[in-house]
Nucleic acid binder design. Structure first.
Lengths: 185, 185
DNA sequence: ACCGTAGCGGACTGACGGTCCGTTTTCCAA
DNA sequence: TTGGAAAACGGACCGTCAGTCCGCTACGGT
C-alpha cells in the first residue's frame, strides 16, 4: 500500500465521518463535499471506496469496531442477552444517527443486504430458538431488529416522552416469555 | 374542475400504477417515464401532484380505498383485531410491493411522516392499551408495525420458507399475552 | 538518479426531480 | 355563436448528484 493512498484513505474517512455527524440528514452529504473536505479528488474517493455505499460502510464499520472493543461479555440468560443486544444497538444508532440512517438508506435497495445485519439476526435468532424451541425464531428476530431501525430511532427521538429502553424491555420480555392464552386468530 | 384536468389526472394515476406494478424497484420509475406513459407533459404531472411523493401517495391512497370497501368489521378481542390489522397490512404491502416501497422510501426522509401510518399506529396502540393497561403501548405499536415494513416484507418474500403469517400470530400473541417471568434486565 | 507504474484529481457524462413560460384549451357570458 | 379571460398544458430548461475517464504526478524499487 503506497503511503499517499493510506494517507488519503484516512483523510476521507475522517472527513466523511465529520460531515455525516454535522448533517441533519444523510442526503445533505454529497460525495463532492466529502472529497473537497478531505482535500482529495473525486476519482480518489471512488477508487478507494467503490461507491457511496462503500464509503458509508467503511465509516460505519470503523465506528462499530471502536464500540466493540468496549463490550464486556455477560453470562446471562438468552432473554437478557437479547435485550442487551437490542439496547446496545439502539444506543449505537442513536449516537450515530445520521450515519446509521445513511447506511440503511443506501443499502442497495434494502437495509437487509447488509453484513452486520445478518450477524445480528443470526445471533438473535439463536437466542430465541434456545429460549423458545419451536417458535418462529427467524421471523421474531427480524421483528425485534425492526424495532431498532434507524428511522424509527430517529422518529422516536423527535418526541422524547417515549422511554424506548423500557419499551424494548417489555417487548423482549413478551417475546421470550412462555405465552399463555394466545389468541385463536 | 376542468374536464381536461380530470382526464389527465386519471391517465396519470393509471399510468403510474401500471409502471410501479411492472417495476422491480421504485427507482426504476422516473417522473419522465410516468408523464410519457400517461401521454402528458411533465408540467401537468407536477402541477397535478406537487412532487414525486404526492403522486405516489395519490396512487397508494386510491388502492387503499379500493381495498377498504371489502373489509368486514369483526367484533373480536383486541389481540385478534390487532393480528387481523397486521395481517391485512402485510398482505396489502405484499400485493402492492413496489408501490408500498416507493411510499416508505419517499416519505420526506421518514416513513413515519405519513398520514396512514399515524392512523394505524393510533388504532394499534389503542388495542394494546386496552388489553394491557400500563404497558408501553405506543412503543409496542411502533414495533409491531415495524414488523410489516415494506422492505422487510420484500426481504422475507425473497426466501419464502418463512411463514410470515404464523410469525405475526406468534408475535402478536406474545405482546398481548400477560407475561410471566420477564427478565430482570 | 532513473523510470515503470500505482495513484491522483477534476473535467465530464448521463439521469433525474423540479421549474418556467409561451401556447393551447376550456367554458362562460354576451 | 362567438369572443376572450383564465385555467391548464407541455416540453425545453436548470441545478444537482453519483459515477467515469484519462492525462498528469509522485512514489518507491533498482
Amino acid at each position: 500500500m503506497r503511503s499517499d493512498k493510506a494517507r488519503n484513505r484516512e483523510a476521507v474517512l475522517a472527513a466523511a465521518g465529520r460531515l455525516f455527524d454535522r448533517a441533519g440528514d444523510p442526503d445533505e452529504v454529497s460525495m463532492d463535499a466529502v472529497a473537497a473536505a478531505a482535500g482529495v479528488g473525486k476519482g480518489t474517493l471512488f477508487r478507494g471506496f467503490g461507491d457511496r455505499l462503500g464509503l458509508i460502510r467503511a465509516v460505519y464499520d470503523e465506528r462499530v469496531a471502536a464500540e466493540l472493543s468496549a463490550a464486556e461479555p455477560s453470562a446471562a440468560g438468552p432473554a437478557d442477552q437479547a435485550l442487551d443486544l437490542l439496547v446496545r444497538t439502539w444506543r449505537f444508532k442513536r449516537r450515530h444517527r445520521v450515519l446509521s440512517l445513511a447506511l440503511e438508506r443506501a443499502g442497495y435497495g434494502s437495509p437487509y443486504r447488509n453484513e452486520s445485519y445478518a450477524g445480528l439476526h443470526a445471533t438473535l435468532a439463536g437466542l430465541i430458538a434456545r429460549a423458545r424451541p419451536g417458535s418462529p425464531a427467524g421471523f421474531l428476530a427480524h421483528s425485534l431488529l425492526a424495532a431498532v431501525r434507524s428511522d424509527l430511532v430517529e422518529h422516536l427521538s423527535d418526541q422524547p416522552p417515549i422511554d424506548v429502553e423500557a419499551g424494548l424491555r417489555d417487548l423482549v420480555g413478551s417475546v421470550f416469555a412462555e405465552a399463555r392464552g394466545r389468541p385463536a386468530a
